[in-house]
Design a protein around this nucleic acid. Sequence first.
RNA 1: GCGAGAGUGGCGGAAUGGCAGACGCGCCGGAUUUAGGAUCCGGUGGGCAACCGUGAGGGUUCAAAUCCCUCCUCUCGCACCA
Length: 857
Amino acid sequence: MRYQPKAIEEKWQKRWEKEGIFRCPDAVTAPKFYCLEMFPYPSGRIHMGHVRVYTIGDLIARFKRMRGFQVLHPIGWDAFGLPAENAAHRHGTHPAKWTWENIGFMKEQLRELGISYDWEREFSTCSPEYYRWEQLFFLWMLEDGIAYRKRALLNWCEECQTVLANEQVNRDGTCFIHDQERVTQRELDQWFVGTTKYAEELLSGHEELAGGWPDNILEMQRNWIGRSEGAEIDFPLEDGGGKITVFTTRPDTVYGATFMSMAPEHPLVLAFARKAGREEEVREFVLKVAQQDRIARSGEEAEKEGIFTGGLCQNPMTGKMIPIYAANFVLYEYGTGAVMAVPAHDQRDFEFARTYGLPVAVVIRPDGEELSSGTMTCAWEGPGRMVDSGPFTGLSSEEGKRKITAYFEEKGIGKRKVQYRLRDWGVSRQRYWGCPIPVIHCPDCGVVPVPVQDLPVVLPEDLPYTREKGNPLAGAEDWIRVPCPACGGPARRETDTFDTFFESSWYFLRYIDPKNDKAPLDPEKMRNWMPVDQYIGGVEHACMHLIYARFFHKYLRDRGVAHGNEPFRRLLSQGMVCMQTMECPKHGWRYPEEVDDEGKCRQCGETVDVGRSMKMSKSKRNVVEPTVIIERYGADTARLFSLFASPPEKDLDWSEQGVEGAFRFLGRVFRLLVQRREAVSRAGESWDDSAETRRIRRMTHQTLRKVTVDVEDRFHFNTALSAIMEMVNFLYLVEDAAWDSPGTSPALREAVEILLHMLSPFGPHISEELWEMIGGEGLVSSRSWPGFDPEVARAEEILVVVQINGKLRSRITVDAGATEEEIRSMVMADPRVLEYTEGKKIRKMVYVPKKLVSIVV
RNA sequence: GCGAGAGUGGCGGAAUGGCAGACGCGCCGGAUUUAGGAUCCGGUGGGCAACCGUGAGGGUUCAAAUCCCUCCUCUCGCACCA
């Protein structure tokens, strides 16, 4: 009898489904555990990254289920998005058809992996029954002023006729689809959502998440939110006709502000130029900067360029008039779009001042150093004593910050200010395959929200699904033309759709009540099930999805639809699946079959460069198809390998031999049980108290303890598996006589039963098969996790290590019950110890209970 | 540039102050086999040895892969954020 995964896996998948053991009833009858993996985009087939994340999630879900929790483990589809439109364009199918077909394929593949989902809760975000609720949320956001319309500068591709997200612009500033097409900046009216209103809470929420979330993700979010404390200061304009407000983190340097820099996009820039009769040259500069793509403009190496606008303003502390420049390094979207320039104490301002011959004024003196504005070669950005700063001269820069800000507030010319790097979220996309934004544009009433009773605004499916250019929705005249809900006059629907991150920002709530057609979800169910106890996904979502989802949850909490402050109690961020790449100097990336045994390219005979391991991707030709692996080795092998090869948070290097190893281990377990099943079924009721029984049971319970702790507390799945392997190795070495003896065979039966329980969350199909084979009751997947007996697991003898002068010199075996006194005297009697201590004076002796004795002579 | 993390056999990785290299891969040997494969058993950091070994150097400690300092390398994130 051989291990043939194909034959057994399908059988058990059908059986689990028939018995519905992974279905999660609404009523909570046991402690709940909500286990969620980031849902997939239905691209057509699963890849190894999917196998890894869903295997990890399934291990946790299955383990918790066996631990007695009522586990909610759902799956759905993040079904809107651009690839569907691109595929539609290429293959002439409808995006909806393409998407639904892909869902069908991928569902089948996930089933083949044997993931324990409650399929009854499955949904796709592209169905109106789902997206109607986010349309409702958007109407609430409009009501609350959280959603608003703003003119903004966006990346625009002339070929696509659509806005591109920053991630869709190549590094060289071209479109990610049309790499010949230069992306330009275009000003458009767009919908925004006020994520910044929650900036402080998104940051302070980290306290609640600390411990449950990996530190690096929290750190990334912290950087992304980018809180900085400082002050806003007003600089009056020369003609007394207003002021420019700047934000600075260094109010202590205000006496050194010798000019002002503004973002070229700032409307005041051209206004100043017009007044000063410099409009032409300034406009030319502004246009030139606008032509520069974002990437070329950003980065510290980029050359600092600017132009005098013709405007002047007054430094409120020195009273001096200072020139206002437009400068390419000033960001319009951050702070106020204007910066007080302190060349002596800011490197950018320093470079700018030297280029344009502007004055440098030292106002902070570092400890024990003299700075001279004429000779300094770079700015001093550190702390120091204030100089040339009027009444504040002599203060430390830290104290100066506080005192000057207080002074501003007293005089009403400035105030304390906390500034964030986080921007409001632009949610409009000029695309077809997305959720329609539920507003109507009326020539008389302006923007009118779609009345709640008219929801959902259903995406029309029966249109020419693709146009040569632009958004197909914009051509759907029958759908667009509607009467204005306010005045009844002719009006037009919004043709933009939501960013697909909108759908993924609340899907975890919908799983709790996926079929509810009266409300997004029932409040009682929500209180029963939220928060998600364990969320699992890739690090690439650290700053986008995971911030949007936290924001959404906080907003919905404020609207009474969610409760609790954070949606995800614990987060596991799993590493990528990588594989070696092979690159031919002439033909680029090669598939393994394009390279011969000697490592030469089959096309040209050149030696192929075997590169380092990189994330699997089609373009690098280092992809392994999960279906091929499942076909050849079975799902349990695929699962086992991805759990064993590497700890979950690290990158995993794919290796064919590693997969073979996993397969071999499963075969070994299979053979062991086939070989011993007779003995196991004949085993008696109770074991004896022989040394052999104790040895077997000790191994069993020690392994059980390690596996339980490794899976439950440490997420060290690879070491849990290695413990299981050790136990299998141990069982192979147990003599035939012990399997057949009435005294020890019951202990071996216990060992085998516990082994199958432990293996079940890792390799569920083979575990069921073997459980059935030894005559186990019911399905092992729905049994309870066995509890280990610490008494049994306790060692009878312990090894005490002896160090002399810090070096390992001897080991002695002592009875587990030995006292410190006994151990000390045994150590002193040990011949190896005597050899090193003879004739020497013992200066110190350290005793670590039941572990080690350290002697200094 | 700033921030975070990592660096251990031929390889993936164990050990989080107390026996460095668990487990697996690879390799070597044995058994079985007509043979190969598969399987089962054993060995496998370096050095003849004393000893030496966790990126390099220093420190703390009876004891350091683990803690501290300096440096190097790599990965990731942010990247002119005033």
